[in-house]
């Protein structure tokens, strides 16, 4: 599996893609593989404030619930509605179509603490 070079990654297995002042956030290929078949995604409503490192939603498989932690602080500006009807997208296209939320950054400095694709892969390897 390849991890896009232009994304930043967290130890909680989220990816972040910065487009202007807005971050697109998703879970990594590794995360969906560990979870198994994903059956439900619980996401915040738009306009919700989120804080880096705090949980803002959850992903469910048949027999497990995993919290999703915000990789950056800011305000949720958009939620991926398609996941409500097709949570299986998270298993199929975790790095693109199955993005979770878009967050308007309140502290752009936080981006610097994310891992690069190479660092993330060696984190997985270790």
């Amino acid at each position: 599996m390849t991890y896009p070079e232009n994304y930043g990654y967290t130890k909680e297995h989220e990816w972040v893609s910065v487009e202007g002042g807005v971050c697109v956030v998703g879970i990594t290929f590794h995360a969906q593989k560990e979870l198994g078949d994903i059956v439900y995604v619980d996401l915040p409503r738009p306009n919700t404030a989120v804080e880096a490192g705090k949980t803002f939603g959850s992903v469910e498989s048949v027999k497990a619930v995993s919290d999703i932690f915000a990789p950056v602080s800011g305000e949720v500006v958009e939620v991926n509605q398609a996941l409500a009807d097709a949570p299986e997208m998270l298993n199929e296209k975790p790095h693109d179509a199955a993005w979770l939320v878009k967050i308007k950054l309140s502290n752009p400095e936080e981006i610097k603490s994310l891992m690069s694709a190479a660092d993330y892969q060696s984190y997985l390897g270790g």
Partner: peptide, 12 residues
């Protein structure tokens, strides 16, 4: 929908 239940979600 067992993820609502105590044996999976425990304190939540």
């Amino acid at each position: 929908l067992s993820t609502r239940e105590q044996h999976i979600r425990r304190e939540k």
